[in-house]
Design a protein around this nucleic acid. Sequence first.
DNA 1: AATGTTATGTCAGCCTTGTTGACATTCCAA
DNA 2: TTGGAATGTCAACAAGGCTGACATAACATT
Lengths: 168, 168
Amino acid sequence: MVQTGPNPSSGENLLFLTDEQLRKGIEAMFFAYRGFTADPDRILEEYGYGRAHHRALHFINRSHGTTVNNLLNTLGVTKQSLNRVLRGLIADGLVVARVGRTDRRERNLFLTEAGQELERKLAEAQRVRMRAAYRAAGPQAVAGFRQVLEAMMDDDIRHTYNALKDGR
Amino acid sequence: MVQTGPNPSSGENLLFLTDEQLRKGIEAMFFAYRGFTADPDRILEEYGYGRAHHRALHFINRSHGTTVNNLLNTLGVTKQSLNRVLRGLIADGLVVARVGRTDRRERNLFLTEAGQELERKLAEAQRVRMRAAYRAAGPQAVAGFRQVLEAMMDDDIRHTYNALKDGR
DNA sequence: AATGTTATGTCAGCCTTGTTGACATTCCAA
DNA sequence: TTGGAATGTCAACAAGGCTGACATAACATT
């Protein structure tokens, strides 16, 4: 163990790395993530969908025409798991899978009008909370928030995130 | 919709509230949470446990002698779901449930030596990543990180979080 | 042309972890 | 004594992960 406990007498540790500080961050992540997903979850329930559907809709919207394999890597799930979700979305007419032009083995995924509508609804619900949190915390806090989150990602996912971040 | 899109010409929006900015935050939360849980998940797999077990161990450790109902509220799951997890942990000798002293209907939950050992292992794995992220981002970023996360929580959960935050 | 590889889909089965509903027990409190 | 609260337990179900196996089509290589 690098550091066995907090250092109560020091008041404020200059390195911000006491176990106490880290624990607060860990708990904040846990509780905040619940809030983060709460609003979309309520909407999804009305449609009989789950978080997996939300994620698929989000990233198809982000990258129109993305392939199944691409989506698989972004989401970090198996093709069987994703396929189950996609089948539902395609059956309900929210997503279309078009045979690839250059490589006809690939399927390019797109949102239909209905798919875009639900995606917008989910995204806006999530943005409302995010916006409120950003507004409450202020611009400087937001910058720090993003810095820490980015540093917390696995390396390979950070690449995906960055590629996505700046215009596909 | 409050704001329909980014404002590319402005370069840096003073309010930090464009949909583009919000979307980056949303994706950062999604990817970062994966990293956040990745290390404990690997350890849990060795023990045949899941994230639910980790959460139970964490909060029992945080509040020695907490009741089942307390834990229920903190974790935000049903008693049946928690009970299944607790049964496993008790059967494996990581947790003990003692009949309450003042109210004998209640069960006070404690970690055994073995339970504390696993909890420490999980917590340290999670702290390693957190510590690295904090160090990379710097103290000011960490403060902002926590501010935004706290603002993102549901009100009732923020109370739980704050009560937990400053020594039970 | 034959062979290998890749992308995708699908079936079956399993696990964790969430849910609801029903019911029993214990025991505090009015 | 009785009502209600806290807890536990059983059953059933669903979402959404997983693995393994297999099929098909299309591209790539030899």
